[in-house]
Design a binder for these strands. Structure first.
Length: 302
DNA sequence: TAGATACCTTATAG
DNA sequence: ACTATAAGGTATC
């Protein structure tokens, strides 16, 4: 039994834990008090969220965390503070990031609506699988798929008398079968997840290897995994590997570009991506994440 | 190298 | 009830 707490007011820009883990960038946390994403309009939640983390040796641990009374507090089966800080992007200087990004009314409104939302640094393999699963899916179902993968393929762990399941390793997923993954609701993504997991387990490719590459090389590298195109590759770069300039061009963001930033709208993904990065700068991914959450939650009605 | 189409499954709209 | 449509796209032809 371990745990601790952090004064979120001491962080530059504070923290909005709920926004961080329920804004569609991470699917690796779940609420204890009910279905995650069940009510996407709820605000100010101090609910407990649970996830699993692994140390450098691959040993899994449980971490329960919540934000309340100005603190981020947690209990865990091991000392997870350093990993938790990294996972939640607590070192990011939000005011400096916002200041460095060219302002406009829409982006300003998105920043104001969810100030404290931080970009996560989730582990590479689970992030890869998550966003392979995300094709043509709603966020609530993407999350449900990850829970199914945990419960059916992951190793059990006990914390405070409760049994949890670690996110499955590449080996555990690779040892599964397409039929089994289809039964978990992955649909046509099942063979993609299976083959990509096999590639990682066999040492043929490693999503973490992209971390040391130049941005566009890293994006290109990740597309060698099955089921990974430019958009999913950008999600892994932004939400796992710390490439804050990566801008996943999904349907929501493409719509926003067409409506609000038509000068960035080009013929191909690669060219639009480049135009968006030139306009918003090295933290374009932060702008993407705030805009996506703002648009998707319907706060932009006016 | 660009463009069109199929794809699992579920929730929601009509 | 029953059908059409869309959901954080990608692979294939």
């Amino acid at each position: 039994m371990d745990g601790g707490r952090i004064d979120v007011d001491a962080l530059p820009g504070g923290l909005d834990l709920q926004a961080a883990v329920e804004s569609g960038q991470s699917y690796l946390w779940w609420r204890e008090d009910g279905p995650t994403y069940a009510d996407e309009t709820h605000a100010g939640s101090d609910a407990w969220y649970v996830t699993t983390v692994r140390d450098d040796a691959g040993t899994p641990a449980i971490c329960r965390a919540r934000q309340t009374d100005g603190y981020l507090e947690w209990t865990a089966t091991a000392d997870v503070e350093d990993r938790l800080r990294r996972r939640l992007g607590l070192a990011d200087d939000l005011p400096a990031i916002r200041e460095a990004t060219p302002a406009d009314d829409l982006l300003a409104a998105a920043y104001d609506a969810f100030w404290g939302l931080r970009i996560v640094r989730d582990p590479p393999f689970p992030t890869l699988v998550t966003f392979i699963c995300s094709a043509q899916m709603r966020v609530a179902r993407i999350h449900a798929m990850q829970q199914a993968l945990r419960e059916h393929l992951g190793s059990p762990l006990v914390h405070e008398g409760e049994t949890y399941h670690a996110y499955p390793t590449p080996e555990q997923v690779a040892a599964s079968s397409e039929a089994e993954l289809r039964d978990l609701g992955l649909g046509y993504r099942a063979p993609y997840v299976l083959e990509s997991a096999r590639m990682v387990a066999a040492g043929e490719a490693d999503p973490a290897a992209a971390r040391d590459m130049a941005y566009e090389d890293a994006r290109d590298y990740l597309t060698r995994f099955v089921g990974v195109g430019e958009k999913v590759a950008d999600c892994v770069l932004l939400f796992s590997l710390g490439f804050l300039e990566a801008v996943p061009l999904d349907t929501w963001i493409q719509g926003a570009i067409a409506d609000h930033y038509p000068d960035c709208d080009r013929d191909s993904y690669a060219e639009t991506s480049r135009a968006v990065r030139e306009r918003f700068g090295p933290y374009a991914g932060y702008a993407q994440t705030y805009l996506f959450h703002y648009l998707r939650t319907g706060r932009a009605e006016a």
